[in-house]
């Protein structure tokens, strides 16, 4: 594994896009991608939670986990849940409209597997604090890109005529499949590295 910071960023963001390559965070990916604006803001909220989680995971990994490795999952999930609670309160205070638009998907960031996966991978790869941060930002940006692309396509798909039988989740799945196919093209970016 090349520990170059740029490589970590590009890899998390495009080549191994969390959503389209690892199938992480699919619930918000399909749930919130109806409207472009909401999708973008949920993306930002997710980036924020990811960055905080990454910092906390580095801290836990350095001080707590060497003494109690079996607490890894539990401690990570508690950190994530509290961060999400915090973000929820902030958004509710700053922008009640956005709070309503995100609805159930805001607390559900807790069960966004992308975030737990981020923390686990970061510990597994032994990233230091800086590398972890870059990794988190890259993953968050990648998630946001996927979400926004999907929302854009879905807004278009809504006004076009499709057979009734394919409407809904089936159509979204196939769109996601094509997007994922497109993202596989990025695998060529760093073939030399």
């Amino acid at each position: 594994m090349n520990n170059n910071l740029l490589w970590i960023f590009i890899s998390a963001c495009l080549v191994n896009n969390f959503t389209l390559y690892y199938f992480l965070g699919l619930c918000p990916f399909f749930g919130v991608s109806g409207r472009l604006k909401t999708a973008f803001r949920l993306g930002l909220a997710t980036i924020f939670v990811m960055v905080i989680t990454s910092l906390c995971a580095s801290f836990l990994n350095a001080f707590i986990l060497p003494h109690a490795p079996y607490l890894k999952l539990i401690s990570f999930i508690v950190v994530i849940a509290s961060t999400v609670q915090f973000v929820e309160m902030v958004i509710k205070k700053i922008s009640p409209a956005l709070f309503r638009a995100l609805g159930i998907f805001l607390p559900l960031i807790t069960t966004n597997c992308a975030i737990l996966y981020l923390a686990l991978t970061q510990v597994k790869q032994d990233y230091n604090v800086l590398e972890g941060l870059i990794f988190a930002v890259g993953a968050g940006v990648g998630f946001t890109i996927a979400l926004v692309l999907m929302a854009g396509i879905r807004e278009e798909a809504e006004i076009s005529t499709v057979p009734a039988v394919i409407k809904g989740t089936a159509l979204n799945m196939i769109i996601a499949g094509l997007l994922s196919l497109a993202f596989m093209g990025f695998a060529g970016l760093f073939s030399a590295a």
Partner: peptide, 19 residues
């Protein structure tokens, strides 16, 4: 067996259920 196949296959299966 690559990632896009997962999405496509599940899409097909859901399509079948809708049908």
């Amino acid at each position: 067996i690559l990632p896009p196949g997962g999405f496509l296959m599940l899409g097909m299966i859901l399509l079948f259920f809708n049908w």
